[in-house]
């Protein structure tokens, strides 16, 4: 299982952390954070520009390039990508994968085009999901500012048959709350698709990673708060467990460790 810090960058190129995709806290310089994660030999990084689609602009290529130039782990980039040429630009900057939410909802044809061009393994579909007060799951776009009409399971399935090589399922209402992943949503989606599913939104402890894997059938776990805040004081502290810690606290507890 991969354990992935999720880094959110805003329109000014700063690293931020959100709560439920709303309230933002400034964390610092993303390049510095990536340097620290690099030293800690993280499995992978997800970098999301949360203002790009909202501001109707494409990816900030200079920033991406600066951020990944010394990242010796795989990086997935998302934010503002709506065409094959933008994907090519992002990949050329040095990222391995592109993460797309809004544009795949608006133009599902883009999934097949991008998979044919870059291979499925570079195409990550991101489903932003929000649980309503009656427990139903809605799909969200534009950094969760708009609702998209559609069934999450059917769309997950359609995206994967169109060529998405991985699905990231980001729970909007759990983002930044540390109350655990939306295991039932993850499980339902992961059972419907063949590709790896990345759990995101709500991780508060290493036990949450184990549940996402064992109960949610996820192949990877992503977390923001857990890796940018000090656990007890909630002060900013870029952190990541070392190999031994991951082994004892996460991997050794998994039902089937891969």
């Amino acid at each position: 299982m991969r354990v992935i810090p999720t880094l959110l960058i805003d329109g000014n190129g700063g690293l931020v952390k959100t709560i439920r995709f709303g309230k933002r806290t400034y964390i610092g310089d993303p390049i510095n954070a990536v340097r620290i994660f690099n030293e800690k030999e993280v499995d992978e990084l997800v970098l999301l520009d949360i203002d790009a689609t909202l501001n109707a602009r494409g990816p900030n290529l200079h920033l991406i390039e600066d951020i990944v130039s010394e990242a010796f782990m795989p990086v997935a980039y998302g934010g503002g990508i709506s065409s094959v040429s933008q994907m090519a630009d992002a990949l050329r900057c040095g990222v391995e994968k592109v993460v797309v939410n809004t544009a795949f909802h608006q133009n599902p044809g883009l999934i097949g085009e991008s998979a044919a061009r870059f291979g499925s393994q570079s195409v990550v579909g991101c489903l932003d999901i929000r649980r309503g007060i009656f427990g139903g799951v809605s799909l969200m776009t534009h950094s969760a500012s708009r609702k998209f009409q559609g069934d999450a399971l059917r769309i997950a399935e359609a995206w994967c048959s169109a060529g998405a090589g991985e699905l990231m399922v980001y729970s909007v209402d759990r983002d930044g709350t540390r109350r655990g992943y939306d295991i039932s949503a993850l499980k339902q989606i992961a059972e419907r698709v063949e590709v790896p599913v990345i759990a995101c939104g709500g991780a508060g402890s290493f036990e949450d990673f184990v549940s996402a894997h064992d109960k949610g059938n996820c192949s990877a776990v992503a977390a923001g708060s857990l890796f940018v805040y000090h656990s007890s004081t909630l002060g900013v502290l870029i952190n990541y467990p070392n190999r031994a810690e991951l082994d004892t606290k996460v991997f050794s507890k998994l039902l089937c460790n891969q």
Binding site: S120, Q121, V197, C256
Partner: peptide, 12 residues
């Protein structure tokens, strides 16, 4: 492959 393993293989 056991059912829990997805394709593509992604990871370390």
């Amino acid at each position: 492959l056991p059912e829990s393993l997805r394709i593509p293989h992604m990871g370390w």
